[in-house]
Amino acid sequence: MVHGVDIGEVEQELLEDLWQHQMEDRPLPESLPAQVKAYHFAERGWLAQGTLTLTEAGQVLARRAIRRHRLAERLLADLMGTGRERAEEAEEDACVLEHSLIEGLDEKVCAFLGHPRVCPHGHPIPEGDCCKKASQTVDPVVLALSQIRAGEGGTIAYLSTHESGDLQKFLSMGIHPGDPIAVVRQTPSIVFRCGHSQFAVDRHMADQVYVRRDT
């Protein structure tokens, strides 16, 4: 039960598909038009009549579903995942977990993770009320390399790259999940140490390396 509207798992996933189509230009599954009809999306006021465009009400619900899904992915990836392989398995688990993140709990998870902005695949996580307040009360477990102070370090948790070319750059230089890493400088560019080598990267690249900090 979410905000008094009865939404099942299938509906939530359909809403997510529609959101990703509308906001992120991703293709719609072929089966979707038939499904939204079967679940009476238009009649429930989520879709504008005769179209596949989310109404305002539909957008609110879809946004919340996406947020929960991506937070769930982050939770799994940050806490358990090490490599890409795991991150992909985590996607399936995330689908299960997201439906357990009842209203309110997702805010706690969000704060626990340090109000992350992207999911492990690099897609943006829609902001919640908690992010707007930006009350970073809990120190996040996993941080992007660009957010770690100089002199601190940890273990590479995962590489979340938007482009496979960037990922290949990291891997061919021998930077892999599970390796220890330490930040030497943050300005004017980020300098980090991995093994016995030092590398310099810009913020864009450093935003893609997620590090589990030493505790």
């Binding site: 960037d166 750059k169 990291f170 230089m173 560019s189 300098v191 080598s197 030092q198 590398f199 310099a200 990267v201 810009d202 864009h204 690249m205």
Partner: peptide
């Protein structure tokens, strides 16, 4: 494409 920076700093 926008440029990205990634370089090894040799000792």
């Amino acid at each position: 494409e926008r440029p990205t920076f990634f370089m090894e700093l040799p000792p």
